[in-house]
């Protein structure tokens, strides 16, 4: 069968026939727009691009694109995306999911994705609320936020996705904001180009249940140009700076990704002979 690649010239060609169902002003529109743009800038072949998503408002994202998509079960974005990429390393795999999906129900998968360093990009669309179920507190809801469904606020400390990813030793860590789509697009491109597990914390406010646009607009600042992205200690200092929310690339290293490790392993093992069923059975005679 002749293999036709599917490239597009402008973002309108990536849009699917399904109209997004998000609320007006939702930060997820910004993330979607930046993904469209990144696909065009990188000239990605849509036939070889897979967007994997979890459950929640963000989970709908692949349906609004003409890429391959997989909208799975709640919290399992990372293992699903891992399976896709390890099965066919030639695919570009982007995983998207919310803060609840990735840090509550699916929180156990994040460190292991970091350990494996599979060449996928994980965009956590963080609105600090459970939007689809109408306003419950999420793992990133800060105690100072009060929500409609949560008049007394949350009683727990909020998790910081950037801090976690640095602690887990994720090989590319960046933060973006739906209020700054140009920068978001640039960093999505960098993250997708990174060979290994790249994590982008996308602050994507929920206008219906936890409108944090004003809160973040007052605090976001670009990471200073002099920051050395290979310096983990300096990256850790950045996220701890009180009163500021840094945007940009925090950290980056270039260790081997798991797909390459497996490829090398196969080469080593097969240098003594490729697998055949006859050889397999010989072990049992």
């Amino acid at each position: 069968m002749p293999q036709t690649n599917v490239h597009v010239q402008n973002v309108n060609e990536i849009k699917s026939n399904v109209v997004p169902v998000w609320c007006p002003g939702c930060g997820d529109y910004g993330v979607l727009a930046a993904i469209y743009r990144a696909c065009v800038i990188m000239d990605l072949d849509l036939k070889s691009t897979v967007i994997v998503s979890g459950i929640g408002c963000s989970g709908r994202l692949p349906i609004f694109t003409k890429c391959y998509g997989f909208h799975g079960v709640h919290g399992r974005v990372l293992p699903t995306a891992t399976g896709v990429k390890l099965a066919n390393p030639k695919l570009t795999v982007i995983a998207v999911g919310g803060d609840g999906d990735g840090l509550a129900i699916g929180g156990g998968h994040f460190p292991h994705a970091a350990r494996r360093n599979v060449d996928i990009t994980y965009i956590m669309m963080d609105n600090s609320v459970y939007g689809l179920t109408k306003g419950q507190g999420s793992p990133t809801t800060a105690p100072e936020f009060t929500l409609k469904a949560l008049p007394y606020g949350v009683q727990e400390e909020n998790l910081n996705p950037v801090a976690l990813s640095l602690a887990y030793d994720v090989s590319y860590v960046a933060r973006v904001f739906s209020g700054a789509i140009d920068q978001m697009t640039d960093l999505f491109v960098k993250a997708i180009q990174h060979k290994g597990f790249s994590f982008v914390h996308a602050i994507s406010p929920c206008t219906a249940f936890n409108d944090t646009y004003k809160f973040y607009r007052e605090r976001v600042v670009p990471i200073p140009a002099e920051h050395d992205v290979h310096n983990k200690k300096s990256a850790l200092d950045l996220w701890q700076t009180k009163g500021k929310v840094y945007l940009g690339t925090f950290y980056e290293d270039n260790r081997l990704d798991m797909g390459t490790t497996f490829q090398k392993l196969s080469e080593t093992v097969q240098s003594k002979g490729k697998g055949t069923m006859e050889r397999l059975f010989d072990q049992f005679t």
Partner: peptide
């Protein structure tokens, strides 16, 4: 994998990718 849920969902991902 880190648990059985990751095992089965990654298998579904791999099979989606044609393997």
């Amino acid at each position: 994998t880190e648990d059985e849920i990751a095992a089965i969902t990654s298998c579904i991902g791999a099979s989606f990718a044609g393997v």
